[in-house]
Design a binder for these strands. Structure first.
Lengths: 349, 349
DNA sequence: ATGAAAGCGCTAACAC
DNA sequence: GTGTTAGCGCTTTCAT
């Protein structure tokens, strides 16, 4: 009997109360030793510390969050994690938030709008202290939820025209425009692009922005946009590019240069060209977006548009920490991290 | 004045109490509508639902967790997220856990043992209902923490000899042995390998297992192991392979075949060979591990050892759900998901 | 089918 | 520097 009692006691996780009793102090003192040790006399601190160690006490943040109204959670919504650039964002963000003792809560939607609101509700129920959104096309319901959360909202990796919070990103339209201008400046006149379709529930909003920017610039230069092909759906990968370039070439066999909304697609284009005996860049020039590592490796090495996603994540993290510590950020509400062209060998010069 | 009062009221997030008052029911009834609607009369349910909608109420899971002692969190510790295979594990896991309404809490250590315990403490403070570990070399302190957490522990992507919980994975040693046997069977006698060094705080435990298995098999066949090279540190990437093959070739210029502990390194090897004018597979055969997408793309396409990481994640998720719902799993405590060789063109036949 | 009481484990605010 | 009191927003348990 006594033995059972004992076992029951040992199997229950130690609480702050157990620590306080063992150390012979109040629970508040234990709490202080954990959250702000300097408030406590070294001798007391020592007693408490060894009680904690003896019991193997680990505080319960759910209880702490409830009492302090601070959860230490930062929510991050991404389209997908299996994309090196989004993973880099999460990575940079974590690096910074770790220091400040925040825990990232990641949700991803697979580019599915229906999933978005569901995920958002789940995140909100965890009471994050800030919410980071990536390329989400917020539904009305989602926007309402977001606003009523009453915490900083950061929209990153884009430059929305009607932002609902802080913005740290780059213009996806500008990416498209830059790609078009680059190709036009090289003297090409028969120019195309490959991206995903925009219909249905699953869509890559940011990719579509790049497509639009590209088309705009083409039109601005008085060039036709009939070789701009939307095919298949996000997430884009090698196979997408391979299939899409086939469609494009059927429509516009005389096409000289192509922009792929993602390096992943661009690589697929390169492969398919190799298969068809189309020489890149001699017969067809290719420019991508994202500066994925594979672009450096492939032959010919891929000319692409680069954005520092890891830095973007870090910058976002720093802004959040400032916002939460000081209530303001040194950044303005809208930061453009810019982009750059990485010239390699897939565009004819 | 009254206006300010009002604003203050509106800015406070609605609680379950607000909902209950607006709906004219008790808080418990609201709670039931949310967690198990069938327990409530349709008419009442309707009243409550519209009160929830009107107020934009989102439950506070921290409070719920405290009361119910169920957080809905599953902890996942990874070496890094910027590795397609680990990302695939997280992905598969999320897919399954989402259905069952669990939220994944991801921590990663960058192969840093010092970071491991710190991260673990953070995770434990969130009271996860299960803990998933990947290739962690648990320190004593970490193991103690883990055990006293008193929740299911799943060790995945490995087959530890002295497991501390459920195991779902594959043998990294067997990967190495399989690679060696494959090369030996092809008739090679001068065989090497490239991996990371094992010294310091930063180490890739699982990669080292693959190296050991490889060496073992070489020895078993009576072959020398002097061309097995440990160079640089994790995480491995293209540059690692490029540098390491240089070291290997200096030591053993007559080497005919190489195993790279990661496809990423293998690709680096391929690149460096191209630079040096060494033809693969004619002069040097290469086999990798991980079946990264790039291996399909590169020229020559990479022969590699494949493991279904996404499936591994899904299987882990299913086991967790079973364990948590029914207290038992249909799987035994040790599951080997196996591996397969993907023969492409980088090994001479 | 619904409600009342009690309490989960912690910390804010104030007292001493 | 340390303790006391009160409660954070929910759910458990038991009553009706």
């Amino acid at each position: 009997m006594a033995k059972t009692e004992e076992r029951v006691k040992r199997s229950r996780r130690p609480t702050i109360r157990d620590v306080s009793q063992l150390a012979g102090v109040s629970r508040m003192t234990v709490s202080r030793v954990i959250s702000d040790p300097d408030l406590v006399l070294p001798a007391t601190r020592q007693k408490v510390a060894s009680a904690i160690a003896d019991l193997g006490y680990v505080p319960d943040r759910a209880a702490g969050s409830l009492a302090s109204r601070k959860t230490g959670f930062i929510a991050l919504m991404l389209p997908t994690l299996t994309n090196a650039n989004f993973a880099a964002v999460a990575h940079g963000l974590t690096e910074v938030l770790r220091e400040a003792n925040y825990q990232l809560l990641i949700a991803y939607t697979e580019y599915d709008m229906a999933e978005e609101e569901r995920q958002l509700r789940n995140l909100l129920a965890r009471r994050p202290e800030a919410i980071v959104l990536t390329g989400a096309t917020h539904s009305n319901a989602a926007s309402k939820l977001l606003l009523s959360a009453d915490v900083p909202i950061l929209e990153i990796a884009d430059l929305p025209s009607r932002p609902i919070g802080h913005v740290i990103g780059f213009s996806n339209q500008e990416v498209g425009r830059t790609a078009a201008r680059y190709l036009i400046d090289k003297g090409f006149t028969r120019i195309g692009a490959v991206g995903a379709t925009v219909e249905g529930e699953v869509l890559d909003h940011r990719g579509e922005e790049r497509m639009r920017g590209f088309e705009d610039e083409l039109r601005y230069a008085g060039l036709p946009t009939d070789a701009v092909v939307r095919h298949g759906k996000a997430p884009l990968s090698y196979d997408h590019g391979a299939a899409a370039i086939g469609v494009l070439l059927d429509k516009a066999p005389d096409c000289e240069a192509v922009f792929a909304v993602s390096d992943l697609s661009a690589v697929g284009v390169l492969m398919e060209c190799q298969r068809r005996g189309i020489s890149v860049p001699d017969q067809l020039s290719v420019i991508g977006f994202g500066d994925f590592e594979i672009g450096r490796i492939i032959n010919p090495p891929l000319t692409t548009i680069h954005v520092d996603f890891n830095g973007l994540g870090q910058r976002t993290g720093k802004t959040i920490v400032e916002l939460l510590k000081r209530g303001v950020s040194s950044e303005t509400g809208r930061v453009d991290v810019g982009l750059s062209i990485i010239e390699r060998k897939s565009v004819k010069t």
